[in-house]
Design a protein around this nucleic acid. Structure first.
Lengths: 126, 126
DNA sequence: AAAACCGATATACTTTAGGATACTACTTAA
DNA sequence: TTAAGTAGTATCCTAAAGTATATCGGTTTT
């Protein structure tokens, strides 16, 4: 039946969001799309992330076969696996939609004059 | 400089994940891609969600101009706004990648014989 | 007129994600 | 030889996300 497929799709969405979701995972993957990076290089890229979190997220992504960790303790290189690279188009689509959304939000703020948008952070429901 | 652009992209990714992220938002949007739905219809679609959360998430999506709420108290219909519908291709891409990822994970479990995958929930980092 | 369905809200609670801060062990460069 | 950079760990803490359960006021259905 049709309905089963739809249920499956919802589950797919939830699963994918589990993987790329959270404060950092998407950004880590996006940063590694560019090129392989070392721990501190990633850390600088991501700005506010603490080493604890970065370590944890990298381990998670490694376990999910999206990221490769290679090298001894002195110099570790993180890169996307082949499977990880299959995310490239998706991340591209996310970036593009993000830019579009920013424009929509800014346009809206313009017309409605409640312009306190700072990097267009999503509004919270009370 | 090139780097500024990259920083912007990371931020875009984080912003978008903020919007479609979390346990339910993506699924709600995906469910509404299909067609407009009423509160309880959505609730059934989503399975385990509690009314409190559904209310909250719908308000959030409404505030972010992605979802429309129309109708009096007796019969409320939720639908995607035009802007919300611009997410369609993105959600499609997510579903497709999710299916691909499931195959990769299942294939891996097959060969490594640790097949306890149930809906291929993402593995946790300790 | 009662039951069941509609779209929620209230209160209270638990769990988890993520942040702050300090520290370690190893390696190169000055 | 000490200073700075590498790649992390350890501990503790808070805020937010999500759950459980009960209730509510209105409206069809029987």
């Amino acid at each position: 039946m049709r309905n089963k497929q739809k249920q499956g799709q919802l589950r797919d969405v939830q699963d994918v969001i589990d993987i790329i979701g959270g404060r950092w995972r998407g950004a880590i993957l996006a940063s590694l799309c560019d090129k392989p990076k070392r721990f501190n290089e990633l850390k600088r890229d991501l700005g506010e992330i603490t080493p604890r979190i970065l370590t944890k997220e990298l381990k998670y992504l490694e376990m999910n076969k999206l990221v490769n960790r290679e090298g001894d303790t002195a110099s570790v290189l993180y890169s996307l696996t082949e499977h990880g690279h299959s995310l490239d188009p998706l991340i591209g689509a996310i970036v593009m939609w993000g830019q579009k959304h920013r424009k929509v939000v800014l346009a809206d703020a313009e017309t409605s004059k409640e312009a306190n948008i700072e990097g267009f952070e999503a509004k919270q429901a009370s």
